[in-house]
Design a protein around this nucleic acid. Structure first.
Lengths: 249, 249
DNA sequence: GCATATTTGTCCGTATGTATA
DNA sequence: CTATACATACGGACAAATATG
């Protein structure tokens, strides 16, 4: 929302004052480059949630955070609104803001949507020529990350990211900005599940090989087959994830 | 966002006081039943935009509206955020909030999405038994409205509403809340186009008969045929709408 | 180009209702 | 019942962008 001279000083009503940080959060606020303070705060919280530092169902107290980040409650609430909009947190009336915990019904709903949209995107490729470069790159990144994550405590999050990139790249073939936005939201919500389900590494690894198969079917022009493969992929993934998620509570 | 005992009195800082309306807006605020003032204000503006009282590209000045509706600037801005989120208005930095004007590219994007999603919903019905009552009701309402709107200056907006209901009811068969939300947003955006394209009545009338055909194909179990019909429907509708919209500038 | 008025953008503190412990 | 914390709404202050003369 800001285009001009980036955020210079811009401190409305005074009362600022550079003190030391309370909980070690404030240092993250140092880096500049955000359009508004609220978006900046939202970005910090978003990242911390995605990294699993704030687990689902955890309450995010206004007072602590606003003091910790040295922003007003109003600004923090604005950030909460942004995050609630994208489904990362949820409001509970009279209780505050919590890191969203997806229900099993949510997971089912999300996969139901994916099973409608994603195979349709593949089928819709008929008669068109598309550039599969992004998809291929995602597949290869996924395989490379799978090998690299073989170690004990490796960076398996790269694997998850690559896997998600594969599905986003496929969606982008439909060439619709709104469809891209949709899948971005859907996969962002599913990421919340990934961090609860314990053995996420194994989850992504299992399906990493199927990515390549779908890609090759599309390259071979077997679109119906590829779409069916995607349907099966999603059905298996849902069953698998629901089961892990249920046991993990 | 409100769950409890609906909105009783709930007036935060005083200064209210029942005065007379300035521009005739305030009377619309009288009816109760809204979770928050911001949502109430958003609903008023949304309806006025949908009815064409605020044409695309028209600026919505904060000062005038907030005084006219007797709400604070902050509350109005919150309402603007809600409307911007759903695509009804847009922010232009330093200039304010404007009724959104869709580009032809937007229309193309929206129909591209619909052509992916809507036929897929129909194809996904295979092997399931669904209740087509809502769909049938929408078709019949559409036909009834078509007859009623035969007069000179009749209420053709009922026809448009029924037509939109048809597509929403079809989407609901997929049984995914998020898919319903998506189609609601998509059709709400398209409504902005309908009010610029002049002969909307004719537009909806033409396609009203095709609704019944799609319904009957689904009832007959000819899902592939119905899905193809939907694809053709959307392709024709897009071409038609883009042409009207281009000439109407 | 430049100075000024107007409007928006951002942020703040506070008041009051309300839900929960 | 009381205390605490959150939800909503308001008005004010100042920066920044735009429009205008």
């Amino acid at each position: 929302m800001h285009s001009g001279t980036d955020n210079s000083t811009g401190n409305g009503a005074g009362s600022g004052g550079a003190g030391s940080d309370i909980e070690g959060w404030a240092e993250e606020l140092a880096r500049a480059g955000w359009s508004s303070k609220a978006e900046h705060v939202a970005a910090i919280l978003r990242r911390r949630i995605a990294e699993g530092k704030h687990r689902p169902d955890r309450r995010l107290p206004e007072d602590t955070i606003s003091k910790g980040l040295k922003v007003s409650r109003n600004t923090l609430r604005e950030a909460f609104r942004l995050l609630a909009h994208e489904g990362a947190v949820e409001h509970r009336h009279g209780q505050g803001v919590f890191v969203r915990r997806l229900t099993v019904a949510d997971v089912v709903d999300l996969y139901r949507l994916r099973r409608v949209v994603q195979p349709a995107v593949i089928r819709d490729l008929k008669g068109r020529t598309v550039d599969l470069g992004q998809v291929r790159a995602a597949v290869e990144a996924s395989e490379a990350a799978g090998l690299a994550a073989a170690g004990p405590e490796s960076d398996w999050s790269a694997l998850g990211t690559a896997n998600i990139r594969f599905h986003l790249a496929l969606t982008e073939l439909a060439d619709s900005r709104r469809l891209d936005d949709l899948m971005n939201r859907v996969l962002a919500e599913l990421r919340l599940v990934f961090y609860v389900a314990t053995d996420v590494r194994e989850f992504h690894m299992t399906y990493s090989t199927r990515n390549r198969r779908i890609l090759e079917l599309i390259e071979a022009g077997a679109l119906a087959k590829a779409a069916n493969e995607m349907t099966a992929y999603l059905r298996d993934a849902e069953r698998d994830l629901v089961q892990r998620y249920s046991t993990a509570l």
